[in-house]
Design a protein around this nucleic acid. Structure first.
Lengths: 323, 323
DNA sequence: CGTCGGAATTGACTTATGTCAGCCGCCGTG
DNA sequence: CACGGCGGCTGACATAAGTCAATTCCGACG
């Protein structure tokens, strides 16, 4: 992936300014352009990730609540985002985006699911220059009644990280189990799904099974269907699939009609970052935790406290995931 | 590793300024301190790696020469540093430090050898906050007639990355083979050496076998001894050990008296970054390449050109290391 | 309990950076 | 070949950030 000649000068300016520590006027003289241009190039360099400015997220993971949750739930890292006036959602997204970026390594394969939360994260994801990273979409698409589509989430994140995006175009949910099975068997789809357990890190949230939940709003399920599933024990939604309170896939037609990363594949990904901020997601989150879908967790403080009420904070934790 | 309460405010200031994009006066108001303090905290945040500003090194790896070398030598990435007036050495170190930092991932184990080049790199290594990284020393120490000791290189890099440094204190070279063997068998030493092949990434240069080479200057070898070794085929020095033109350890008493990472251990490290800038190191570098000690290479442009003269640039390369 | 030393903090000033309207040159079009 | 439009660049101004001497705060010690 060669640098466009036009961008060469941006790289040079960024290098001289940020790495050598020259002032803008010195860079301008060096490159024989005006200082104003240097300022412009530097802005572009930041915007495109040629220069990456990352702030440690330790502030959020180094917190008694966060430590207690790590211990109580046996998680690798927990970030607790304090209530910040009104815009907690945005703050959570910001922390999640920074923390996620911190976790990504060279050559990683990233799985991204979708939902309002994930979209919000994509929206504040810093720009970076991770050319050897691949972002794969974890679940099928929906028509477009909704503003954020799975493929958009994937692509937006890939764009910002300057990574390769790997989308697949299949509906999230079909009307017949047979059709879903056949579609899953199509090479283009099968390959995408088969690649998922090879992922290094996943990013998702968990959905509720309320009447106003995401799965209903986006048209995957009718309120009536959802009521039925809830009666059968539905507790949450992960990558488009319904799980029960233990985090197991609910044995229902809907789940068999979904085209998405299957739950075992998700669990095969070593780092699973879940991001949740709404208090109402408590039960769904507990189901996701029970199902082993989480190794890294970003939560808002109030939800963190509720979560801790259910998990004895001082018990010795089960061993955290090995290196 | 909890944040010292005093540092908490630095983290907060950095987060508000760099991640939220507030201005310094806004941060000052938010935290109820003066703007001057904010400026000071931000400087500290940068200096300690709480905030990490990284510039892409693509400028140096995306270059015809660099690409040709990658192909010709089957290396993973090559950075070519253009002649920059007088201070090429420093520029090479800067590129090496940036490129090296880019290659490090979470939880990595880093091996560091020593020499003037490595010390120069340590000296310009950006500060970062890689708490779960370990830096291990690859070779034994020398008394202290020289200003840069292996353990200093290791510690300095560890300090700057906020990583854990793992030193071992044994002389680089002893007077008898028996003593060296016994010392290598001491648990403290044996463990350190045994851990080396588990490393994820190594950083070193290669030494020449000239009369004014590092091994002579630091007193490991007398000029006379070196002449003898050269007659026997010595071509370069890696982590204190003499290699021949094919990169194999020279069968000599000196090598058996050295306490250092053995060559097979070095080759077991998946990423091996070698940094060389002096033209006179051409032969030594070729030996190191022949021996398979290099996967990532940072070189100055003149040396890169000479290197290419020996390796047909347009041939199809042997397959690069698989993922 | 007073005083001294050092570190942290600040106000005021200097310096550097961000911004934007206007300009210049290039290219495609009529 | 003239014209219009567009993108990139710059000069000049407005704004933000860096700096440093002076001051305050705190804790230790006589």
């Amino acid at each position: 992936m060669p640098i466009r000649p036009a961008d060469q000068i941006i790289h040079k300016a960024a290098w001289l300014y940020y790495t050598h520590g020259l002032r803008q006027d010195e860079v301008a003289r060096e490159l024989d352009i005006s200082r104003a241009s240097v300022a412009m190039y530097l802005r572009k360099a930041r915007e495109t990730g040629i220069v990456n400015i990352a702030t440690s997220t330790q502030l959020f993971s180094d917190d008694v609540l966060a430590r207690q949750l790590e211990d109580a739930l046996g998680l690798q890292t927990v970030w607790v985002v304090p209530e910040a006036g009104r815009s907690t959602e945005n703050e959570v997204a910001l922390v999640a985006a920074s923390a996620f970026l911190e976790q990504i390594g060279r050559g990683d394969r990233i799985g991204v699911a979708w939902g309002r939360t994930v979209y919000a994260i994509a929206d504040v994801m810093p720009f970076a220059d991770l050319q050897d990273v691949v972002v794969v979409q974890l679940c099928g698409n929906l028509g477009a009644p909704y503003s954020y589509r799975p493929d958009e989430c994937t692509m937006e994140i890939a764009r910002r990280l300057n990574a390769k995006g790997l989308n697949f175009y299949a509906p999230l949910v079909l009307t017949s189990e047979r059709l879903a099975a056949e579609l899953r068997d199509e090479p283009v789809i099968r390959e995408q799904l088969a690649g998922i357990p090879e992922g290094d890190i996943a990013l998702y949230s968990v959905g509720t099974v309320d009447e106003d939940s995401h799965v209903v709003k986006c048209g995957a399920l009718t309120p009536a269907e959802l009521r039925g599933l809830r009666a059968e024990g539905a507790a949450g939604v992960i990558a488009g699939q319904i799980i029960d309170r233990n985090g197991a896939a609910l044995d229902c037609s809907y789940n068999r009609r979904v085209i998405s990363a299957d739950l075992a594949s998700l669990r095969a990904i070593p780092k699973r970052m879940m991001v949740v901020h709404e208090d109402v997601k408590l039960d769904a989150l507990r189901a996701a935790l029970a199902g082993g879908f989480v190794t890294h967790l970003v939560v808002a403080a109030p939800l963190a406290r509720k979560l801790l009420d259910f998990a004895p904070p001082r018990e010795t934790a089960p061993a955290a995931a090995a290196k």
